[in-house]
Design a protein around this nucleic acid. Structure first.
Lengths: 228, 228
DNA sequence: ACCCTTTCAGACAGATCTGTCTATTCTAGC
DNA sequence: GCTAGAATAGACAGATCTGTCTGAAAGGGT
């Protein structure tokens, strides 16, 4: 993104986006992209409106016409993060069919995330910490976490867990801990550590599936066809 | 530089106050107590200097004489959190002698922490998220996390883990995840969930008895004699 | 051509925050 | 009682931030 187009009013919408023209994104999209970049890397409280509009090359009035106020922009930013996270995990899940492997694939997706040099922890945790008891942010975070937990629960049930809820909560703890450690300790291998611990949990609590050999509880990297 | 403490405060408290009087705490102590309460519950960025001094009943000049600037107060606040956390865990560890039980006791201490109605997540994570790449805060957080990890590593070694470092990292992940979940999901039972997962990990990776062989994992004998 | 929507540019008000400074009050020790 | 130093109360400067408002430019659709 970054679209640092020479501000100017140059050929904005490019007439039409039909031709091969890149079609400069709308003000809304540019604002959201800038919010994603600045809010995520520096924090929603630290980054002011002026920074956003300057980075997006957008007038202040456009921001307030589009999102109402700063909180509206923050909400839209978190919503886009949520969608992005869902897509990343859904994509990782398509790589496996075996339920046990699908559970571990979540941690592989996490590992890919950590390799991004711009990785800076969970956006919902940070935003929630910054905004205190901000209702809007809390709602977004709650929805995101409920989805994550439901996803883990479904996969755990498919894998034949005796108590899918419990296993899901435990895996979610590992997932959260890895997100936190990757940021606080600047350690991208946290996902591999979490995956190894998850594998131990699965082996100990899932019924002994005749699934090939006794899997591998390797450290970072791991996984057969892992990574993109 | 820190320790800009003018001898004044020391003179006041250290001088003589041992009359029967309650001895009102020094300005420094009241400021630190207010910082602990307000910074922790609402965030270091959100809470302004004026709120702090009003709550502490202290003049603004006293704050700046004692801590230099706001960052100095934040640093002192985090240092006191670190000490408190160390004490709580050390206290919990004295309750058990068996290494395996001592490892699990860390999660019990965590559970007690979660029962506090004012619990609001890890102060270091929140402060770090709010202040971005604030160097002082990062240093405090790094020190705290290094201590936690070292503590887990020592206990894991005492318990005879083949790879104490790995086990410590995994347990730390569970611990962090529980801290995060207790705050984000407002679920104090997260410590119990983490403890259960930790017990599974210990059963699966620790040798069955404090004797006998060292199981399938590669272990250059360093297992039980490592560190104290 | 004409209208209409979107966008731009930036001044401005009102609030808030950090940090400094002045002037007064309190307390301990001689 | 008196004095020195610490603490207090609060005004103040300087900066920053959110949100509003005015006014104009620039195309698209009819």
């Amino acid at each position: 993104m970054a679209s640092r187009v020479p501000a100017g009013t140059a050929a904005r919408t490019g007439g039409r986006q039909e031709a091969g023209q890149p079609a400069r994104p709308s003000a809304r999209e540019r604002l959201l992209a800038s919010a994603n970049e600045l809010f995520y890397s520096e924090g929603v409280q630290t980054v002011g409106i002026d920074r956003i509009i300057e980075h997006a090359g957008v007038a202040k009035a456009s921001l307030y016409n589009t999102f109402g106020n700063k909180e509206g922009l923050v909400r839209a930013y978190l919503e886009s993060r949520r969608q992005r996270s869902r897509n990343r995990i859904a994509r990782a899940l398509t790589r496996y069919r075996e339920p046990r492997e699908r559970l571990l694939a979540v941690f592989e997706a996490q590992g890919e995330m950590f390799t991004d040099p711009d990785y800076n922890g969970c956006a919902f945790v940070s935003a929630s910490a910054e905004a205190g008891a901000g209702s809007a942010i809390t709602d977004e975070a709650d929805e995101y976490r409920a989805w994550m937990r439901g996803m883990f629960t479904e996969l755990a049930a498919e894998a034949g867990a005796a108590d899918p809820e419990l296993l899901a909560r435990q895996l979610h703890l590992l997932y959260d801990g890895a997100m936190l450690s990757a940021r606080m300790d600047r350690d991208p291998t946290a996902a591999g550590t979490a995956r190894a611990a998850a594998a131990v949990l699965l082996n100990a609590t899932l019924p002994p599936r005749p699934a090939s050999d006794g899997d591998a509880r390797k450290g970072p990297g791991a996984a057969r066809t892992a990574a993109v």
